[in-house]
């Protein structure tokens, strides 16, 4: 099967020291890929490379090539907004607009495909059901979304990202600010969404990666150390550094 994303010899820096060094990597369609590694390894940078969210950081510079569906997304002609519609993103901290729950779900859709107005109620219901939030909020769709709990807000963020119907969902440590119940709700959600959707998730919790990922990418100090099927990487890593990291949470790269 052809990979969805292909990174060829990608290096990134923000003006000073390199953050990613010569990373070459594929992400497969329909799978859940988890990026693991110590903090500061460049996990978020790698993730944000896939929807060009790094562009807004001053002095950002990228060498190498990133292909999405055989198209180099760092070409001059790339329509970045269109790319981001296809490659959705969920952030570490849920970002909720000071609007109603209903309007938050529709925030992207409303401005991207305004022609589908009559479908809006259906989209809201469908998306909230997809993230298992419907039962909790169906009676207060017009209340401010800021009243929801952190966990509910994060699921609302996911619903909002899904409403744009992306093909890929990037998740940047989506459970790091959540309680255990909400965390397992989101882990379960990721399992349900995979298949139709390609998911790339950054996490620093190894058990979480083990639980939900098909593939695992281990990076350390900007270098790709190991990339393989989840069960292989966790049970029998190929590289010594991976072994050390998995056992001692140490990284000598």
């Amino acid at each position: 099967m052809k990979p969805l994303f292909t990174l060829k010899d990608v290096s990134i820096d923000y003006g000073t020291s390199p953050v990613l060094k010569n990373v070459s990597l594929n992400f497969d369609k329909g799978k859940v890929t988890s990026i693991i590694g110590p903090s500061g390894a460049g996990k978020s940078t790698l993730l944000r490379t896939l929807n060009r969210m790094n562009d807004h950081i001053p002095c950002f510079r990228l060498r190498g090539e990133v292909f999405f569906d055989d198209e180099n997304i760092y070409n001059n002609g790339t329509k970045v907004p269109l790319l981001r519609q296809n490659v959705g993103m969920v952030f570490q901290k849920p970002c909720i607009f000071p609007k109603s729950i209903y309007d938050n779900v529709l925030f992207g859709v409303r401005h991207l495909c305004s022609g589908r107005k009559y479908e809006f109620p259906r989209i809201v219901e469908e998306m909230l059901k997809a993230v298992s939030l419907w039962e909790e909020v169906k009676d207060k769709l017009n209340r401010s979304a800021l009243e929801l709990s952190q966990g509910q807000q994060q699921r609302l963020s996911i619903a909002r990202a899904l409403a744009v119907e992306p093909r890929v969902l990037l998740m940047d440590e989506p459970t790091s600010s959540l309680d255990p119940t909400s965390t397992s709700a989101i882990e379960e959600l990721v399992g349900r969404l995979s298949g139709n959707l390609t998911i790339v998730i950054v996490t620093h919790k190894l058990d979480q990666a083990k639980k939900i990922a098909d593939d695992v990418v281990f990076i350390c100090e900007g270098k790709l150390i190991e990339h393989g099927m989840s069960e292989n990487v966790f049970s029998n890593p190929y590289q010594q550094q991976t072994k050390d990291y998995l056992r001692w949470h140490l990284c000598k790269c």
Binding site: M53, H56, P81, N86, G88, C95, F97, F107, L112, V164
Partner: peptide
């Protein structure tokens, strides 16, 4: 206005 708002809107594909 929090930077997150901008990131969120951009990440959804808004110009």
């Amino acid at each position: 206005v929090p930077k997150e708002y901008r990131d969120q809107a951009l990440a959804l594909g808004l110009k």
